[in-house]
Each structure stands twice: as C-alpha cells, then as structure tokens.
Simulated assay, not measured.
Amino acid sequence: MNTNANTHTLSPELEALARKRVNARIGFFTHACVYAVVVTGLNLLAFSQGKVWSLWPTAGWGFGLLMHGLGVFGLGPGSALRERLLQRERERLSGH
C-alpha cells in the first residue's frame, strides 16, 4: 500500500530531471550555509583584531555563491528559465 497519496508517476526522463533539480538546489543551500558559517567566523576573527581583511574572501566567495545560485535557479541545465526559453525557440522554429 502506498503511504504517500501525492506520489505521481513520471516518465524516467522527468524523474531524472526532477532529481537533478532537487540535488542542485540542495547543493546550493548547503553551499550557502557553509558560506554563512565560515564568513561569520572569518569576520568575527578579523574584526576582533581591528582588521578588515575578511572582506576580500567574503566578497570573492560571495560572488562564487551568486554564480552558483544563478546556475541553479536561473540559467543552469534544466532550470525553469532555460526550459521556457528553449520551448519558445522550438515554437518559433516550428512556425507556431
């Protein structure tokens, strides 16, 4: 007996895409949490010494985190935006 009444049967391709998207999102959120913890520690250490050196790794890593987020939520493989743009291009090319 299925205990989850909301389970939908998907084609293997859609199931693989769903899993890929979920794993990408989990990876991003893990990255963001590690960033927050490490950057907080670096800033506490630097500012307690009256220094501001921690702003450089904070900014650099923050840019990397931003790019990771854009890849996951914006333009990465299987992203919703990419799929919409791809669908529009298919429709344009097919004359619809």
Rank of each mutant, 00 (worst) to 15 (best):
N4M: 03
N4I: 08
N6I: 12
T9H: 15
T9Q: 14
L10E: 09
A16N: 11
L17S: 10
A18R: 15
A18C: 05
R19A: 11
R21Q: 14
A24F: 02
I26V: 11
F28T: 12
F29C: 05
F29S: 07
T30W: 02
A32E: 05
A32C: 01
C33Q: 12
C33I: 15
V38S: 01
V38W: 06
T40S: 10
T40Q: 05
G41F: 15
G41S: 08
N43S: 15
L44A: 14
L45I: 13
L45M: 09
A46W: 01
V52I: 04
W53M: 04
S54Y: 01
P57L: 03
A59P: 05
G60N: 13
W61V: 04
L65P: 02
L65Q: 01
M67S: 11
M67Q: 05
L70N: 13
V72Q: 00
G74W: 01
L75N: 12
L75K: 09
G76Y: 05
G76A: 04
G76K: 07
G78P: 02
G78I: 00
E83R: 14
L85M: 07
L85E: 13
L86S: 13
R88N: 14
E89G: 01
R90Q: 05
S94Y: 13
G95D: 00
H96Y: 13
H96M: 15
